[in-house]
């Protein structure tokens, strides 16, 4: 029996030089390199064909699918895709740092204007995703990368999804725990971009606090941590909440008073608090959407957001940091892969 297969090698738009291996995940090896000719710094995610006896991993597919469509200054750019004889290469723009590194780097001081600038760039990126009806579903400081010129870029679209219809059932098992919206924690199967907005709100709080806002120690306890900080959702504040699958035997915490919030976020202006409250509103239908958030008074009051070229940068050695980040990514990917396989098995 002769089964004819194709062997075609398409020439990439440019040639690329892999200079240095910086990390290895379950399905990909990441290299830093340069685009020949332009000398542009790039990162290459090399996807091993041989690793996919069962077809290409969904997160790799989603990354390609969405990044090819989404071109925006606050979303990581997929520069090119090319293949060699036995692997597929995603050429991404080079982004040496991420927001998590900066938040943890206590040698770096954040001014309120810096926080505003990062939040604004995040919301612009999220807005672009949402107006293209794409949910990111994994926003967290670690996925907000920083370009050498200070621009913030949303990265990692491995969990992203565009709902086909408003009534499409989706898995609630998305978003890294600490940034997971209450409707997801309660196990809803129908959700919207509001889940991303919640994550943005928690990131906003983290930028002001310099420490994670709702660090639940386990999936089971995350809901309790969330309600303890922001008040237990009830039928009064969120009609319909009691019919969600996870809504049972909950401790009832009162919502924090304005003063309590003021004490929690000492540096925040009243307008900053307003925005934070709207971003972390329990009821997803009342929560701000990306347009409302972008139009909030917080962004028009003084101080102006810092010019991105003036934003603080990581203090330590870049290479070290990069290495750590890639290791984290590799771990993340391993986790995600597990999740995918589990899901596939379930399906």
């Amino acid at each position: 029996m002769s089964i004819v297969a194709v062997k075609l090698v398409r020439k990439p738009k440019h040639t690329y030089i892999k200079e240095k291996k910086v990390g290895e995940g379950t399905y990909a090896v990441v290299y830093l390199g340069k685009q020949e000719g332009t000398k542009r710094d790039i990162a290459i995610k090399e996807i091993k064909t041989s690793a996919f006896k069962d077809g290409l991993d969904m997160s790799a597919i989603r990354e390609m699918k969405f990044l090819q469509e989404l071109k925006h200054v606050n979303i990581i750019e997929l520069v090119d895709v090319f293949s060699t004889s036995d692997n597929l290469n995603l050429v991404l723009e080079f982004l040496p740092a991420d927001l998590e590194m900066l938040i943890k780097d206590k040698a770096v001081i954040f001014t309120p204007a810096d926080v505003k600038s990062w939040l604004l760039m995040t919301l612009r990126g999220v807005h672009h995703c949402h107006r293209n009806s794409i949910l990111h579903r994994d926003l967290k400081p670690n996925n907000l990368l920083l370009a050498p010129d200070g621009q913030l870029k949303i990265a990692d679209f491995g969990l992203a999804r565009s709902p086909n219809a408003p009534l499409d059932e989706l898995t609630s098992n998305v978003v890294t725990r600490w940034y997971r919206a209450p409707e997801l924690l309660l196990g809803t199967r129908y959700y919207t971009g509001a889940v991303d907005i919640w994550s943005v709100g928690i990131i906003f709080a983290e930028l002001m606090l310099r420490t994670p806002y709702l660090p639940g120690p386990s999936d089971a306890e995350q809901l309790d941590v969330t309600f303890r900080a922001l008040g237990t959702a009830t039928e009064d504040t969120w009609p319909g909440v009691s019919s969600l699958p996870g809504y049972n035997s909950l401790k009832i915490y009162p919502p924090p008073s304005r003063n309590e919030l003021r004490n929690r976020f000492l540096a925040a202006t009243e307008k900053a608090l307003d925005l934070l409250i709207w971003l972390t509103t329990m009821d997803p239908s009342k929560r701000f959407d990306s347009s409302e958030a972008l139009l909030s008074d917080y962004f028009t009051e003084m101080p102006r957001p810092t010019e991105c070229s003036h934003l603080p940068k990581k203090s330590g050695q870049v290479d070290e940091a990069l290495k750590r980040k890639r290791e984290d990514e590799a771990q993340e990917e391993a986790k995600k892969k597990e999740l995918q396989t589990a899901k596939r098995r379930k399906a």
Partner: peptide
């Protein structure tokens, strides 16, 4: 039966060629 190989890796392999020929534009 006579045209599709039992080995699923053939499809996995072809998927790569397909993505390549689509220039990875898939939406």
């Amino acid at each position: 039966p006579e045209y599709v190989p039992h080995d699923a890796t053939k499809v996995a392999e072809f998927e790569f060629y397909l993505i390549q020929e689509l220039n990875s534009y898939m939406v």
